[in-house]
Design a protein around this nucleic acid. Structure first.
Lengths: 123, 123
DNA sequence: TACATTGTAATAGTAATATAGTACAATATT
DNA sequence: AATATTGTACTATATTACTATTACAATGTA
């Protein structure tokens, strides 16, 4: 199960952030084949977005055969083998790191400040 | 000087891609304090986007005190702002690191993934 | 059989994104 | 002083993203 998070600062549409997090969740092994995803309503409430936004994300992933939906039952990770390339994973990590590094810089922190903070943090 | 590139496939708005690349340029040391950026018209022609799109990116970065603009002269990298108290800075760093981690987790990355990424990055 | 839960669909309205075009104001250059 | 270059501002238009609301259809459950 993923703890979904939307970041409005990135400008990336919400439905696409949901898509990405599901894709990366599968690729990283966090989401297993056959596992049920949150219902469109539950995730919409959780993320404080409209039901249609979640539905749009799920729908696109179903077209790509990454998800399977059953009306009245729910949405599940499809059995089709799916993985992201190393390059795609690297690019996403780059993007995330860049965004936060730039924020840290704008407050006068150094890269080492961030690394030290992460090393001292639990989890 | 950055070699700007826009990727329409990502779904990320053009003006935000420009913002990101400038921020990344600063964070990576490619862009130095005081350096002049391309003029809004030159970059618009280069990227084949409208003048207003570049202007919007520069404007937002100026609001964040990352850029400084002078009418008739151009747009430049400004110094970062260190106006927070020590306590505020510590809290801010906590907040940045926490958000950083949460978003990375939601994409299936581990804390170590991030630390490695930061360690392998220049600047 | 009822009822709740699930995904789906459709309409409407608002905001964000991007374009095109034009014009203006401040500065630099000649 | 005249001209070019710079960022800025404005209107208009089109498309996409998102929300709000309502309703419907398929499935699971009491």
């Amino acid at each position: 199960m993923i703890n979904f998070i939307l970041d409005p600062r990135t400008g990336t549409p919400f439905y696409r952030q949901i898509i990405d997090q599901i894709k990366f969740g599968i690729a990283s092994g966090k989401l297993k084949v056959g596992e049920q995803l949150p219902t469109v309503r539950a995730l919409a409430v959780d993320l404080k977005v409209n039901l249609n936004t979640v539905s749009k994300a799920y729908k696109e992933l179903e077209i790509q055969s990454i998800l399977e939906t059953q009306l009245g039952t729910g949405t599940f990770i499809s059995k089709s083998d799916f993985s992201l390339s190393d390059k795609e994973r690297k690019n996403k990590l780059d993007q995330i790191a860049m965004e936060f590094l730039s924020i840290a810089y704008s407050y006068g922190f150094t890269k080492q400040d961030i690394i030290n903070k992460l090393n001292n943090q639990k989890s």
